[in-house]
Design a protein around this nucleic acid. Sequence first.
DNA 1: CCGATGACGCGCC
DNA 2: GGGCGCGCCATCG
Length: 108
Amino acid sequence: MIVSNKSFSEKVWAVTAKIPPGRVATYGDIAGRLANKDSAPAYRAVGMALHRNPRAPVVPCHRVVGSDGRLTGYAGGLAKKKRMLEAEGVAVVDGRVDLSAYRWQNRR
DNA sequence: CCGATGACGCGCC
DNA sequence: GGGCGCGCCATCG
């Protein structure tokens, strides 16, 4: 259970879970939201948090794509990730999504 | 505490 | 355009 209580990871899962269906977000966006003035966007940590994702079903990590909209890794297979995105209405081409059209733009 | 790794991003060749 | 390396933060060992 990742002994670490409310940690960076939890924030990542929280933001990821906020991603509306049919929409995708980049690690940079998530990291940017979690990025505090004291901490720079940790794309790495974000990816790690999702990789560790203890509650996959509750955290739509499959909606998180790379900066180019490219489907990065996924605990289960990118193929499945791609499939889930398409199921939500996100067009995935060659393992890539059109950020210009599906990028999650939720400006607090 | 230190060292190494990782679902990234960007720069450079 | 494609391939390679470095830097970033956080977590794991």
